[in-house]
């Protein structure tokens, strides 16, 4: 895998096809953790770990087990229990080997075990990529890692906005979730600008 491919995959996953703002996956955790900046950052880190690991393991499962048995139609059904087991097991491992880090992000692992963003990233990584050609193993891992960073980026930006929104004179009817959803929508429009990257690359 050359540098060009790495840059293309990570830029695409981070900005152009951002998991939250362009694919609309993981909206629920985005709004629940972005109340405070620290929570948003730690959840983003936990999500990055979960997405990278599941992208790697599930690419192997899909290519080495499901594809030879021509059972790729079972991908979603197989991925759900495997991701749950994988994320919870990695939580256990983290607790054992990095107790201090686990104390900060441990609460998020049960959330991530059944999260649409994690399975979405794994399905995209294992399936055909956006240009029709498939990801390699390293490409899938890179895609998972960059998608996690994309979530981290958006949740951090979102938390920064919501911390300031708490002080803003928002009309009563728009306070809380409505204004947060509108901000997310406006941010998604701004991220649409990154689509120029992909059209320029073509």
């Amino acid at each position: 895998m050359n540098m060009h491919a790495i840059a293309e995959i990570s830029l695409a996953a981070l900005l152009v096809n951002n998991i939250v703002l362009e694919r609309f996956l993981g909206l629920c955790p985005l709004f629940s953790v972005s109340r405070r900046l620290s929570g948003a950052i730690w959840f983003g880190i936990a999500a990055t770990i979960a997405m990278t690991l599941s992208s790697m393991v599930l690419w192997l499962v899909s290519r080495l087990i499901l594809a030879p048995l021509s059972a790729r139609y079972l991908e979603i059904a197989v991925f759900v229990p495997l991701i749950a087991a994988l994320v919870l097991a990695s939580g256990h491992a983290l607790e054992r080997f990095a107790g201090d880090t686990f104390r900060r992000i441990g609460v998020y692992f049960p959330l991530l075990a059944v999260n649409c963003a994690v399975i979405g990233v794994a399905l995209i990584g294992a399936g055909p990529s956006m240009h029709g050609n498939s990801f390699s193993f390293a490409g899938s891992a890179m895609h998972g890692f960059a998608s996690g960073l994309g979530f981290l980026l958006v949740s951090t930006l979102m938390a920064g906005m919501r911390e300031r929104l708490e002080l803003a004179a928002v009309p009563r009817a728009m306070r809380g979730a409505p204004i947060a959803l509108m901000c997310a929508g406006l941010m998604a429009l701004a991220f649409d600008g990154f689509a120029l990257f992909s059209s320029a690359a073509k």
């Binding site: 048995l69 059904a77 229990p81 495997l82 994988l86 919870l88 097991a89 256990h92 607790e95 054992r96």
Partner: peptide, 27 residues
């Protein structure tokens, strides 16, 4: 039946992984 068998094996693998990790890894 093949699909059911496959999902059963997946669930079994997930369960074994989790029980092993909670026994061996969890503090």
């Amino acid at each position: 039946f093949a699909a059911l068998l496959f999902l059963g094996i997946t669930a079994l693998v997930g369960g074994v992984v989790l029980s092993l990790s909670s026994q061996r890894l969890q503090a």
